[in-house]
Amino acid sequence: MKKAHTHSRRLFLQTSSMLASLAFIPRSVKAFYLETRNFLVASKKTGSLAVSVNKKLYTVEADTRTTLLDLLRENLQLTGTKKGCDHGQCGACTVHIDGKRVLSCLTLAAMVPGKEVTTIEGLSDGEHLHPMQQAFIECDGFQCGYCTPGQIMSAVACVQEGHTHSVTEIKEFMSGNLCRCGAYNGIVEAIQKVAS
């Protein structure tokens, strides 16, 4: 897909410089040509976004294609939120929007203004870790740590939602967060600890 795209782009750039020199070609042909070029080589669409992250308001100029995940990591340098799959399948990018856990990789940044985003950076109270962060440390809730910000954001929501009555229930309601290191038992323990 991408390949075909660059090909047509190069072709159009070459031909367009050629055509530009032929000033006498009929106007309708030129209009048709420009329309086709705009269709094939679509121009970037950007806009200004005011987003509130961890109770701080940021105003960013961003492409409409920007996901909340990329906005956090690339524009706001809040790199605690991780990109695992970028397709909604792993949960590494989990953040809270208006208090609810969601996937930032499938959320367009353009849909976030007016809402409150909470990321892993917003959980702790200064130097004081959130009880769930502390519990993850105490219960060995991670190994490499890559899935951990997403796991913790999901775990906090899991407790808030009240899905902690049994190990089975915790596992079911944490199933949207994958861990390649297999730290699942420690994660369940940490959640039980905070819930009790």
Binding site: T94, R101, V102, L103, T107, S154, E161, G176, N177
Partner: peptide, 9 residues
Amino acid sequence: GASPQIRNM
């Protein structure tokens, strides 16, 4: 279906 995060969206 899906996961809690996806069901929220």
